[in-house]
């Protein structure tokens, strides 16, 4: 799902749930998601299938898992 498709669906759901105040927050989240997906260390995320960016395994020392 692209970011734009997600945002349209999320806002429609917020309207359906009478949570209209959520829509500006969804816009802000969409901006953050766009930044997340576009980060240089994550550049394959929105591209065509290809070599996957390695997802994290369990932290070796358990510090943040």
């Amino acid at each position: 799902m692209t970011n734009d498709e997600w945002l349209v669906a999320a806002k429609a759901d917020a309207d359906r749930r009478q949570l209209h105040e959520l829509k500006p927050l969804l816009d802000a989240l969409a901006t953050a998601t766009r930044a997340l997906r576009g980060a240089v260390w994550n550049r394959h995320a929105d591209g065509p299938p290809g070599p996957a960016t390695a997802l994290p395994g369990p932290d070796a020392d358990g510090a943040a898992s």
Partner: peptide, 28 residues
């Protein structure tokens, strides 16, 4: 409270794939 509820509700819209990306970002 209204603003806390809205932020909690916002979390229900985060896609699993983006949570996984953020976990990768944490390691970076």
């Amino acid at each position: 409270t209204r603003s806390v509820r809205l932020r909690l509700e916002l979390g229900r819209y985060v896609l699993a794939e983006d949570y996984a990306r953020a976990q990768h970002g944490r390691d970076v």
